[in-house]
């Protein structure tokens, strides 16, 4: 059998990890590490990246990825692979609020085109762009699994369903 399931362990471990992250962040990451078997710290890489992305205003710098690698004894390249593979990680700065609008089939049938038009008009940006005041980034996403509430969008951790232009206004105007 050719395939073997093994962690990618760095050749160049950082012994003193006390300079990596704050104690609070370390304890958050440690909680994730504790879920996985001995020797599989790297299973916590997705959670560590998500925690640090939140901490850093919504995006990941090269330095953060390197620190995550050092903390989990992974080669940096293995962390970059993960950070570039999954769509929720941002590798460029984003606005304070990331507005993720679904345009997949159930939303499309229920008028997501109109929601996108409205969002673009209201925010003055196109999909994939950030407003000049860095308050909003508008992002098109694939099905978020809330098709019963189509059309829908996600902002931060919240889902907003059964959207109409007026409702979108209300939601966006309510965000600081």
């Amino acid at each position: 059998m050719g395939f073997k399931s093994e962690p990618m362990i760095t050749m160049d471990p950082v012994e003193d990890k006390s300079n990596l992250f704050t104690p609070e962040i370390r304890s958050q990451i440690d909680k994730w590490i504790a879920k996985y078997p001995e020797g599989w710290k790297q299973s916590a890489v997705m959670a560590a990246l998500a925690i640090m992305q939140d901490e850093n205003g919504g995006w990941l710098t090269r330095e953060i990825m390197d620190d995550v690698a050092a903390y989990l004894d992974m080669p940096p390249i293995a962390v970059y692979e993960v950070a570039t593979f999954y769509s929720m990680y941002e590798l460029e700065p984003v606005g304070k609020h990331k507005v993720c609008v679904c345009t997949n089939i159930s939303c499309m049938i229920n008028g997501s085109d109109k929601i996108v038009d409205h969002l673009e008009g209201k925010l003055g940006v196109k999909l994939g762009q950030t407003t000049k005041d860095n308050k909003f980034t508008l992002k098109e996403v694939e099905c978020l699994g809330a098709c019963g509430g189509a059309p829908m969008m996600q902002i931060g951790k919240e889902y907003y369903e059964n959207l109409a232009p007026e409702k979108v206004d209300e939601i966006l105007d309510g965000l600081e």
Binding site: K35, M46, M74, A78, E81, V82, F85, Y86, Y89, C143
Partner: peptide, 27 residues
């Protein structure tokens, strides 16, 4: 039992990609 959070990849619904993802790799 523990939960593991994904990060946006349809392919991780494929069982072996999902296992790779739990192992901290690309799905």
């Amino acid at each position: 039992v523990h939960s593991h959070l994904g990060a946006g990849a349809y392919i991780c619904g494929e069982e072996s990609a999902l296992l790779e993802s739990i192992e901290g790799k690309k799905g």
